[in-house]
Design a protein around this nucleic acid. Structure first.
Lengths: 215, 215
DNA sequence: AGACCCTTGTGAACTGATGCACAAGGTGTC
DNA sequence: GACACCTTGTGCATCAGTTCACAAGGGTCT
């Protein structure tokens, strides 16, 4: 019954998936989930589910499974889902706009409260209800809206500068879609999503299987 | 000089980053890159770069480094970058539209050639130059455009059905943005990008450091 | 040619994550 | 209460990936 010590990074990355899986269980019905069911819902295997949950100090009941409500509570607790973390989107191009409008963010406690863009035509307007400011005002904006997370959806060239500005403004969590490496202080957490690279990985396997076919 | 045997998955995932890093070197100038430089550009450490490249059977010259052009060629070769893989985007909501319009895809050999959406108002129109079809026509479309990759940007509920249709149509590579687990045959490669989950991972760390501060 | 410098390529140790397999310990039934 | 059944929790073996550290060897300068 370890009261939540160090949780392996790989486990942390799966917790949101479990939480997502639990959505298919009604609230307040005292439903139970087995590690097998949850594994199916999250797309992993049962042993992993059990080991992951054991890091949370969660206890199911042997022979029965986990109480869905309690499990939801436990995982939410660990992830800090109770908090709402305001997000500022930097770069309102195609992608930025889509993200600002993405209901999945607000639903999960990450409301997009403001945005920046270098296009003078956009500055000062509302795009999908999100106020767009000049990049130079980033510091101010972060403070005013209490933003905790920065999303970088600028062109690659502007990404590092934007990251620097976010860090200077006190943002410690960045999700970047720019195809570049960002250098930031150690205490800043960056998650980088390179969509083109993702496709190239798929391409590798396509290429491979085509080669295999030919021989 | 192993002629490209099995390449570890982790290495494959980094090859696109190296290729990206090499973009900062001019073509045809016989420039050389050291593993150190490339490591910096790709955001990994030098030992990893060298080991990764060794899987390709690539040879740099000791004391000097790698020839930038040749390295580009080697990595491109391994990734099969020479091929063009047409992409069909399923679900032209905010995200789908942004992806269809994403220049990074076309630039890297993944042109978006067609899309599907269930909204009758969109079917038959061109959105950003991409023809939108009914979901039911997916099989036909894949054949007509020779699509090799399917992107799923539909709501979660429609994702599995879309995946099934893609698989039935012969698509063996899927990139999914839907927050669900997709079940597909073993020979189909799925890369799942859950943006909300990504933010929740950031949220975990925010939560953690806030807890640490308080104590 | 020889000496020195530099960076590669790689064996080997290490780290973290995964999966197995089974004892522990609940629940329900007779 | 005893027995059968089930699913958890976890020690251990295994595996993949990372990092270290150093010998191998090409380049350059004298």
């Amino acid at each position: 019954m370890a009261p939540m010590g160090r949780i392996p990074e790989a486990t942390v990355a799966r917790l949101p998936l479990y939480l997502r899986g639990l959505d298919s269980f009604p609230v307040g019905v005292a439903a139970t989930v087995s590690s097998d069911e949850l594994a199916e819902l999250a797309g992993v295997n049962a042993a992993k589910v059990r080991k992951d949950l054991s890091y949370l100090g969660t206890y199911g009941t042997r022979g029965v499974g986990y109480d869905a409500d309690f499990l939801r509570f436990q995982i939410s607790q660990a992830l800090g889902v109770a908090n709402v973390w305001p997000v500022v989107v930097c770069g309102m191009g195609n992608l930025g706009r889509a993200l600002a409008n993405h209901t999945g963010f607000t639903d999960r406690g990450f409301p997009v409260v403001a945005a920046t863009d270098s296009d003078p035509a956009k500055i000062g307007t509302l795009i999908d209800g999100v106020p767009v400011h000049a990049p130079g005002e980033l510091g101010e904006i972060v403070a005013r809206y209490n933003a905790a997370v920065g999303v970088i959806s600028t062109p690659a060239e502007a990404a590092q500068g934007t990251a620097d500005a976010l860090v200077a403004a006190g943002v410690a969590s960045i999700m970047s879609f720019a195809p570049t490496v960002l250098s930031v202080p150690d205490d800043v957490e960056v998650r980088s999503v390179d969509l083109a690279a993702e496709l190239q990985i798929l391409g590798f396997h396509l290429h491979r299987s085509r080669l295999a076919e030919e021989s």
